[in-house]
Simulated scan of single mutants.
Amino acid sequence: MPSPTTRRLWISEPTREECTHRRAVLELDLGLDSLALLELVETLQGRLTIVVPGEVTIRIPTVADLQDAAARLVAAALSSAPTPRT
């Protein structure tokens, strides 16, 4: 399994080209309403082992914002995780 730093965020439906375009607006371009965004955030939290605060969720209008927020939260989780003893 890849480490959280090497994972990529892929959104399926509508098309991968639309979703990978960082300027795509989640609601207008991709058709995600507020409930779909919450479901997407819950899925990311589970898969990336992060917690996305509500104040972050409401500031995610584009694919770029979603990718950037997830990357920041993963980095913060990794930096605060205890290091394993050898």
Rank of each mutant, 00 (worst) to 15 (best):
T57D: 00
I50P: 01
P84N: 12
H21D: 14
V52K: 00
G46M: 08
V63H: 05
L35I: 15
H21L: 14
G54K: 04
R23G: 15
L48R: 12
V56P: 00
T49S: 14
A81G: 04
R23A: 15
I11E: 04
L38S: 10
R23S: 14
E27Q: 12
R72N: 08
D29F: 04
A71T: 00
G54A: 11
D65E: 09
E55T: 07
L40H: 05
D68R: 04
R16I: 14
L78I: 08
D65G: 12
Q67W: 08
I58P: 03
V41A: 11
P2H: 08
T86W: 15
L78K: 04
A75M: 08
T86Y: 15
S80H: 11
I60P: 04
L37A: 08
R8T: 07
A76C: 06
D65C: 11
I50M: 02
T20M: 15
T57S: 07
V51F: 02
E27G: 11
R7C: 01
S34H: 07
E17M: 12
L38F: 01
R16H: 13
P84W: 15
P53C: 04
S34P: 07
L40F: 06
T15E: 15
A71Y: 00
T49W: 06
G31V: 07
A36L: 11
I11T: 07
T83C: 12
V25Y: 03
E42Y: 01
R85Y: 12
S79W: 12
